[in-house]
Every structure is written in C-alpha cells, then in structure tokens.
C-alpha cells in the first residue's frame, strides 16, 4: 500500500513537470497527460518486481477487481432502471444477515461501501460485536438467500481479503 502511494506521487509529479515545460514536448491536453502518468506508473510497477514481490503480484488483481466492480455497477443499475420504468414491481426485498470474515475497520468499511454501491443491495447496520452485517437486498433469485450470501462472499469479500492481506 505504501509503495502504491509512493509510486502514484512520483508519477503525478513527473507527469506535471513534463507537461508544463516551456516548449511542450506533448500537446497540452488531458489525454496526453493521463498517458504520460500511466506510462510512468507502469514503469515503476514493473521495477517493483525486484524489491516488493507482493505488490507486483497484487496490482493486476486490483485492476481486475476495479473492472469487475464497474461492470457490476452498470449492469445492476440498468436492472433497477428497468424496474423503475415498468409499472409492476419485480423485487422481493429481503434483509439478510451476512457473517463477516473480514476483521479490521478498514476492510469492513470498504466491504460495506462496495455492497452499498452495488445496486440492489444496501448495507443497513453492523452488529455490536462486528460479526454480522445486515444487508437489505432487492432481488433474491427463487428466494434463495444462501445463494446471494455465497455470491457476495465469493465476489467481493474474497477478492478484498486477497488484496489487503
């Protein structure tokens, strides 16, 4: 995590310096700056194989996680839009109790935020001993609560645990 912050700071500063030189080497617009930033970040990431092996391995996983998350966000948003625009309700709202296997505050916060941002599910409350997260879900297939729990645990929690430990 520290390496990630350091690398993004270095890439940011050098991209700023490169685009603000007096005879500009690249056209002054957003896409060339983003391109420079990404190239410098990629070079720094590929050098991290020599001094920080776990960071080198985790970065592609984080990228796949981000893509998976954006896909979930778009697909389920369209699902909710369909339900709003048609007169019948297709939802069966359920409150499920999700047993947590993440422990620290940061992980619980991230998991709750991601559950809330995935449409159809809303994290309502955490029990006092931080073992159970109560989630309000709109769509439960065939009233099968266990399937939804398995989906959340395999889709989000496992990937989050892989990233943070």
């Amino acid at each position: 995590m520290k390496t990630f912050y350091l690398h993004s700071a270095i890439a940011f500063v050098s991209a700023y310096l490169i685009t603000h030189q007096d005879p500009p080497p690249l056209p002054y617009n957003a896409f060339s700056t983003a391109f420079v930033f990404l190239v410098i970040f990629w070079i720094l990431w590929s050098t991290s194989w020599f001094y920080n092996k776990p960071y080198f391995r985790k970065m592609p996983k984080a990228l796949f996680f981000a893509v998976f998350f954006i896909k979930e966000l778009l697909v389920a948003n369209i699902k909710i839009a369909y339900d709003i625009l048609t007169p019948r309700y297709y939802m069966r709202p359920t409150v499920i109790a999700l047993p947590l296997s993440v422990k620290t505050d940061l992980e619980i916060t991230l998991l709750a935020c991601m559950i809330t941002l995935t449409p159809g599910t809303l994290s309502i409350d955490v029990s006092e001993n931080r073992k159970i997260l109560y989630v309000h879900a709109l769509y439960v297939k065939n009233n099968d609560v266990e399937l939804l729990k398995q989906y959340i645990k395999n889709g989000f929690e496992r990937r989050l645990l892989e990233l943070t430990t």
Binding site: N77, I80, I84, T116, L117, P119, T121, L122
Partner: peptide
Amino acid sequence: IGLLRFPDFYIRMSAITKG
C-alpha cells in the same frame, strides 16, 4: 422517478444512491 415511486424508505435509498 424511483425516489417518487417506490413504496418504502429502504428501497428508495438503495435505488437513488447508485443512480
């Protein structure tokens, strides 16, 4: 429109936050 149409507070909340 979801905020106006949906029948209960929690469904409204989960509809509008992401949208």
